[in-house]
Computed example of a mutant assay.
Amino acid sequence: MNILGSTKFDQCVINISLINICNQESYVGTEMRKHYNSWKEETDEAVNNPWRDLHKFIIYVPHPEQKYENVTLEEGLTKGYNIEVEPVKNKAQVPYTIPEGGHFVVVLKQTRLDSDFKIAATGIFIRPLGVLSLDVVIDPEVGEYQPLLIKHPIIRNYPEDWQQKLTLFLNKEIRAEDLPNLVGYVDQSVNRDYRSPSWNEIFLSSKGFAGF
């Protein structure tokens, strides 16, 4: 099916993408700092914590049998090569009003081998919670979307009221600093004992095998 999340493969791609986005020591984290620092040099502004400035993440969900040169699909997904990130220089181009601490997300999906990627969802990444809040495209012709919340697959200790606090944050009733800071556990720059799982571990775990 074309709808994002309709297959186990889709779900695993989103999960491992979320894992890589949360980990500042991942390829995605490195790319984020590189683009952010370059942008600040161009504008001659002070370099601060890039997470305080709005960024756009593009997650590519490939066809499960897609082949690439010089890297396998599994290796690319493990490393996070299916994710692009850049600072948002013009907030007027973002279709959401995103509080500081949130970031814009676009998910593109490839439905056939060697075909173009098409938009499958848009939404917001909330870093402290390690959560994606997506609007999944159901019928683009009539503008039908379905909300979908995706928690980090490794974080186990989400508090009972995390969804209420998420709503308060998105409504700008509380700040990002008021959210439970769960992401540190799955960020190697904070938790040196953390090891990011591979694609195979994520996929096997989704099938009920023991994993992380």
Rank of each mutant, 00 (worst) to 15 (best):
Q11N: 09
I98G: 01
E41F: 08
N181V: 12
E42C: 01
E144A: 09
S17I: 02
K172F: 13
H55W: 01
E42M: 03
Q24F: 07
L148R: 13
E84H: 13
P128F: 02
Q66P: 04
V88L: 06
S196V: 12
E141V: 08
D53Y: 02
Y68E: 08
Y81V: 06
F212R: 15
G184M: 03
I98M: 04
E69N: 13
L77H: 02
T97S: 13
G102H: 05
Y194V: 04
E177Y: 12
V186N: 08
G80N: 04
G80R: 03
V190M: 12
P147L: 03
G80V: 05
N37H: 07
S17L: 06
K118F: 14
Q163Y: 14
N20Q: 04
I202L: 08
Q24V: 01
V107R: 00
N70V: 10
F169L: 05
Y60C: 07
R195Q: 06
D114G: 06
S6E: 09
I3P: 00
D135M: 12
I59D: 02
L54D: 03
T97V: 13
L182I: 06
A46L: 12
K172W: 10
V190P: 02
K91Y: 01
E100S: 09
E74W: 15
W39N: 00
S133A: 15
F117H: 04
V131Y: 06
H35F: 03
V137R: 02
T97P: 02
N191H: 10
L179F: 08
V85D: 00
I202T: 06
A120Y: 02
L134D: 03
S26T: 03
D116M: 14
Q66F: 05
P64Q: 01
G102S: 01
L149Q: 04
V13A: 10
K79S: 06
S198Q: 14
L149F: 13
C12K: 06
N157M: 11
I124E: 05
V190Q: 08
F203S: 13
K172T: 07
K165Y: 02
Q11S: 13
G184Y: 04
G29N: 03
E100F: 09
I154L: 03
V13G: 10
E141D: 08
E84D: 11
G211S: 15
L73R: 14
P64A: 00
K207I: 14
R175A: 15
D44I: 05
T122L: 07
I19G: 03
Y145F: 15
M1K: 09
R52W: 14
V94Y: 07
E141Q: 10
V190N: 11
E141H: 10
K151D: 07
H35R: 08
G76Q: 01
A46H: 11
Y27L: 13
A92I: 09
T78L: 04
M1V: 07
L4F: 10
Y81G: 07
T7K: 04
G76H: 00
N70R: 09
W39A: 01
